[in-house]
Nucleic acid binder design. Structure first.
Length: 851
RNA sequence: GCCCGAGUGGCGGAAUGGCAGACGCGGAGGUCUCAAAAACCUUUGUCCUCUGGACGUGUGGGUUCGACUCCCACCUCGGGCACCA
């Protein structure tokens, strides 16, 4: 026997796999395809434990599926555009490109040292012009389809990153996703992808993804935020209070409460506000509210705990259902960017309106009341409004009966009620309202005022306006030498932006904004299927052959961002005729984080355990096994050095067990004999242990298979540990009494079982120790026979009134009646004189006696 | 406020409604050794009146012969959304 030395065997096999292109994949009609994908890394520095976890999971799945007979596509690449490269370049006085590519080289070396089974010929690097040029091509496609718009809008500006951000890149507490600075709202002209065109489909198709975690689907559904309701047109009155031809439209989810509208609200930023109050007695008060809201940060305003501030504008609208004149106020709590920026206030049914009405002493007519409320007794059949206040401390927004609501009185009210439908139907007849669905999702702002990104292929011409770069002029090449350390951007490079207009030929100006990096990561998985295609981003037939991704693995932090954008891209490219499927990722696994003492490992906290250090001490196989063993993949993992040492012991036990199974006497490094034989075992005892080992082999093969199928890698490894424990017990049998067929089969099965999990050790044992031909990673997964996984006899627990009182051993195939008899005998003393009421026999498990 | 997810030994974690705590870590004891390390063996939920027994999966109920698992109500923690009309 020679010693287990991962530093020796791991690099050796890695080199061999690379030389023989073991993991290269091409189309193969004889096998089913399987596409295993892990979220590609951002090359920000060294590979960290989160990467190790992510890619170890994907690697096990890939290797297992390969052994199961699939043609497996398992690619890797780098998401290499983005701001950190600029920040690093400024700090180190270099360029974003040189920093990025140096990091890619380092990370590539680390990933190779970990032994992942990637097809390196398919590597995609998003900052390579061979990739981002096609990103521009796709941009033009979307533009042709009407999915690209440049328009002015209130947007999020990060003062620290000096760029605008998409809504998805502003975290819940109003801070930048990257640098955590509070974002500012500014009205700016920017580029958008019209993801809202797909809002309904993006929501509906979540139901077609049973292989996604509920949590992620829920988060996307929340983000898309669909509300069903109605638009209602209120007639605007002029300064003298007389009706005009103009209307102001509101969105409401509660049309059933329309009779309870006692005032009307506009957002402070609403364009009509200024016009209403200029040079009137209301100007001062209204302006004060406008300034008050403008001064509030997004964080403050979204907290929802601010005092309800507002002011009367002096103008009125008419309620279309009953012609009542109601005053128009502005209110700080009304948002310009949701619905229409105008709200019908129903203080009896909405808590915010209720508080506002109490503050400014406005009427609170009840219109939907629960039937057990005293108001219901008074108003049950009351059609006219006779009551303008409620005896309540809060608004009531639950289901109830409509009152004071004209001919609708008596109908059920509440969200989505028959009363609501009836009111909308009437409004529709009158031509002053219609059912509507409103989404919270906003269009995706994709322009960034940064250098290190994909240039937006657009040109501004004084005569022709904004024109796309013609397809034949692609790619727009990002200049390599922009000196961000000196504050340069694309806008400081005339040779980049001075161009002639492709339409009129006159002098024009190239767009100097780049695209959000998330545009790059929204289709990289498509390019992997056809990475070297010089004529197209990917050929339809090729991409349809591999896609959708069978198993996608990555962090939960992309639950909305990357995963929503990729779904949008897939649907848009489908509609462009480039793809033949609706969703990019059939199954999604969101892996948990790797923590140390309960905290996320991070450079700034200084609590990073470097994978490289662990590889040097224990090897890549032990590190990978450890990280898969310590927790289920979707849960957070608490780092434990002792745990890793335990796994290292296990790996060594496997190593020695294989030698010992081959009949070698095993010694440790110092020459101490580790094989210990129990000379008291005779042929009969040896045979019994052999039977047990055979059973365990069949059981564990079945268990590991089903565990890997369900991503229970931790229990798969536990099962292999149990097998090794059983093997160890068998190895007490002196060599002369062993069953040669059994030991050979056990050694072979053990190596095959551990191959996806500890690929280097398995390969070394397979070749150099078992002397088998061909890579272990190309072998068929071991078969098992469930009927051989069970013993001839089983021990059953006997319960009396739910408590275990005895155990009996019976033949595995014993008839229920016989088991019942044996059980009753076994608990006879416990039962005493008590009459037996019922006996339940669960074959193979237990017998339950009820007295 | 709305919506998800999770609560099991000293620790990480196991359990298609069927013997709770697999497997590993840690602890205790032992074998080998001059000694130690390594390795191996035994043991390890809590409590008690200890060859046995009681209790035990966040809390309180329920369904069931039988509940960590299913149902109802609640508590705590984590996450998402949120002055969303």
């Amino acid at each position: 026997m020679y010693q287990y030395d991962p530093q020796q065997i791991e690099p050796q096999w890695q080199a061999h796999w690379e030389k023989t292109r073991l993991y290269s994949v091409t189309e193969d009609a004889t096998k089913p395809n399987y596409y295993a994908l892990e979220m590609f890394p951002y090359p920000s520095g060294d590979v960290h434990m989160g990467h190790v976890r992510n890619y170890s999971i994907g690697d096990v799945v890939s290797r297992y599926k390969r052994m199961r007979g699939y043609n497996v596509l398992h690619p890797i690449g780098w998401d290499s555009f983005g701001l950190p490269a600029e920040n690093a370049a400024i700090k180190q006085d270099s360029t974003p490109g040189s920093w990025t590519y140096a990091n890619i080289d380092r990370q590539r070396a680390s990933l190779k040292r970990l032994g992942f089974s990637y097809d390196w010929d398919r590597t995609v690097v998003t900052s390579d012009v061979e990739y981002y040029g096609w990103g521009q091509w796709i941009f033009l496609k979307l533009w042709q389809m009407g999915l690209v718009e440049r328009r002015s809008s209130p947007v999020n500006w990060c003062p620290s990153c000096k760029t605008v951000l998409a809504n998805e890149q502003v975290l819940g507490d109003g801070v930048c996703w990257r640098c955590k600075s509070p974002v500012e709202r500014q009205e700016l002209e920017q580029w958008f992808f019209k993801i809202t065109d797909y809002a309904q489909e993006l929501l509906d198709d979540l139901d077609t993804l049973p292989g996604w975690p509920e949590r992620v689907k829920q988060m996307q559904a929340n983000w898309i935020g669909r509300s069903v309701g109605a638009e209602i047109d209120f007639t605007l009155c002029d300064a003298a209070g007389e009706p005009t031809d103009e209307t102001i439209t509101v969105f409401t989810t509660r049309p059933d409460t329309l009779f309870g509208c006692s005032f009307f609200l506009l957002a402070p930023e609403h364009p009509l506000v200024r016009e209403f109050v200029v040079d009137t007695e209301h100007e001062v008060a209204v302006t004060r509210v406008v300034e008050y809201s403008a001064a509030a940060t997004a964080v403050e305003r979204s907290k929802g705990e601010r005092e309800k501030i507002g002011a009367f504008t002096g103008r009125y609208v008419l309620n279309p259902i009953n012609g009542r004149k109601v005053p128009i106020w502005i209110a700080d709590y009304v948002m310009m960017d949701y619905g229409t920026g105008a709200v019908m206030a129903v203080p009896s049914g909405d808590q915010r309106d209720f508080e506002f009405a109490r503050t400014y002493d406005l009427p609170i007519p009840p219109v939907v009341v629960p039937e057990d409320d005293s108001l219901y007794q008074q108003l049950a059949t009351q059609q006219e409004r006779v009551r303008d206040d409620v005896p309540w401390q809060t608004a009531y927004d639950g289901p109830g009966s409509m009152v004071q609501s004209g001919t609708f009185t008596g109908l059920p009210g509440g969200k989505g009620s028959a009363g609501a439908d009836a009111v909308v139907a009437r409004l529709q007849e009158l031509g002053v309202g219609r059912p509507t669905v409103n989404f919270r999702l906003r269009d995706w702002l994709i322009s960034r005022q940064r250098y290190w990104g994909n240039p937006i292929p657009a040109i501004y011409c004084a005569h022709c306006g904004i024109v796309p770069v013609p397809e034949q002029d692609l790619p727009v090449i990002l200049p390599k030498d922009v000196d961000v350390a000196k504050g340069e951007t694309l806008a400081s490079r005339p040779e980049f932006y001075e161009v002639s207009c492709p339409v009129c030929g006159g002098s024009a100006h190239r767009e100097t904004d780049t695209m959000d990096t998330f545009t790059c990561s929204s289709w990289y998985y498509l390019r992997y299927t056809d990475p070297h295609n010089p004529a197209l981003p990917f050929a339809r037939e090729t991409v349809d052959g591999w896609m959708p991704v069978d198993q996608y693995i990555g962090g939960i932090e992309h639950a909305i961002l990357h995963l929503l954008y990729s779904r949008f891209f897939t649907k848009a490219l489908r509609d462009a005729g480039l793809l033949g499927f609706d969703e990019p990722f059939t199954n999604l696994l969101t892996q948990g984080m790797v923590k140390l003492n309960g905290e996320v490992m991070s450079k700034s906290k200084g609590n990073v355990i470097a994978p490289e250090d662990m590889i040097v001490r224990y090897g890549a196989d032990a590190l990978r096994l450890y990280i898969l063993f310590m927790a289920p993949p979707d849960k957070d993992l608490e780092w434990s050095q002792e745990g890793l040492e335990g796994i290292f012991r296990f790996v060594n036990r496997v190593w020695r067990a294989v030698f010992d199974l081959l009949g070698e006497t095993v010694f440790d490094e110092e020459g101490n004999q580790l094989s210990v034989y129990d000379e008291s075992l005779d042929a009969v005892a040896a045979s019994a242990r052999g039977k047990e080992l055979n059973r365990e082999l069949h059981r564990v093969i079945g268990k590991v298979s089903s565990d890997i199928d369900r991503f229970n890698f931790n229990t798969a490894i536990s099962a292999i540990m149990e097998l090794v424990n059983t093997v160890s017990a068998y190895l007490k049998v002196p060599v002369a009494l062993r069953d040669a067929e059994l030991t050979a089969r056990a050694a072979r099965s053990l190596v095959l079982l551990i191959a996806p999990l500890a690929p280097h050790m398995a390969e070394e044992l397979w070749h150099s120790v078992l002397g088998c031909e061909g890579s272990v990673h190309l072998q068929a997964w071991p078969e098992h026979d469930p009927s051989q996984a069970v013993d001839d006899t089983v021990e059953l627990a006997v319960q009396v009134n739910g408590k275990v009182r005895a155990r009996i051993v019976v033949a595995a195939d014993a008839a229920d009646a016989a088991v019942r008899e044996a059980a009753l005998v076994a608990v006879a003393t416990v039962l005493g004189e008590k009459p037996v009421r019922k006996v339940v026999v669960v074959p193979g498990k237990l017998v339950s006696v009820v007295v």
